[in-house]
């Protein structure tokens, strides 16, 4: 029997690696807009149903030039910021309490599970009865939408803090506040920031919903009005601005993650 021939081992690895391809992302977006414009030029897309990007851009420019954009944007951003901050503040407090205290967990978690799935848009009329038709009901709607996911993220974050770290803190005689502030809170931070990523999007979605009732300024009110008036170019211009707001908010969260979670 002769020695069998040596065969090279075929390469089976590779792939499934995350590599940033910024150019690809950009050209995908650009290509989509281009295809859309081409469809409008060729008459494939009825401008009534799908206005061309150029028309949307013109509407956007007109909005910016007239100062209406700044007015709507400021009104919406104010509501988003107010509602998000209130919802996040209360949510973090409740989430930490639920994560730390067994009593708070027993009392709070079923409540959160029961109330979280309620669409906040559906209870908007109720909020209007409670808080009036002005700003408070809009801010409250956003705050309520932000509150529950924050509670869940914060409580989950506390759960994810290894108990051995808490025992370590106790073994060095750290007072309870220091254990919470120096061990539990930073340990819960990754989960909390992941929650922020979701809650900023929720806040943008809900500001549109909240501005459906009793608002004459704000991006949501503007988009809704454009829809009522069948101004599809303005409607899409508003949608573009909303999406940019969402993108910027997500960018802020990414920045916060980079700054606060350098240790990961």
């Amino acid at each position: 029997m002769s020695a069998p021939e040596a065969r090279p081992v075929p390469f089976r690895g590779g792939g499934f690696v995350r590599r940033p391809r910024r150019l690809v992302s950009l050209s995908a977006l650009f290509g989509l807009v281009l295809a859309w414009q081409a469809a409008s030029w060729s008459g494939l897309a009825n401008p009534l149903f799908l206005p061309a990007p150029a028309m949307v851009a013109a509407a956007l420019w007109e909005l910016a030039r007239s100062g209406a954009l700044a007015q709507h944007l400021l009104a919406s951003l104010g509501r988003v910021a107010g509602g998000w901050l209130i919802g996040t503040g209360l949510g973090l407090a409740a989430g930490l309490a639920v994560g730390i205290f067994a009593t708070a967990r027993a009392a709070g978690m079923p409540l959160v599970s029961a109330l979280f799935p309620i669409p906040k848009i559906a209870v908007l009329p109720l909020f209007i009865l409670w808080f009036g038709i002005g700003e408070p009901s809009k801010v409250a709607t956003i705050a309520a939408g932000v509150f529950f996911p924050t509670v869940i993220a914060a409580a989950g974050g506390v759960d994810a803090v290894p108990r051995s770290l808490v025992r370590m803190g106790q073994s060095f005689g750290l007072p309870a506040w220091a254990i919470v502030w120096r061990i539990v809170v930073p340990g819960a931070l990754p989960s909390v920031l992941a929650g922020f990523r979701i809650t900023v999007a929720i806040a943008v979605i809900l500001v549109v919903a909240a501005e459906m009732i009793g608002a004459d300024t704000g991006l949501g009110a503007f988009v809704l009005m454009a829809g009522n008036l069948m101004r599809t170019d303005q409607l899409l211009a508003g949608v573009v601005v909303l999406s940019l707001v969402g993108l910027s908010a997500a960018g802020l969260v990414s920045l916060a993650e980079r700054l606060l979670l350098r240790w990961r």
Binding site: P162, S164, L165, R167, M168, G169, S171, F172, G173, L174, P175, A178, R182, I183, P186, G187, L189, L261, W263, R264
Partner: peptide, 30 residues
Amino acid sequence: CLNPLTYVFQDFALLPWRSVAGNVSLALDH
């Protein structure tokens, strides 16, 4: 002596978000 009975843990129990110096000073911070 600030902490008469002091542990060294099997799993180190270091805070991943604190630097080496920060982990050491944790025992003093309060």
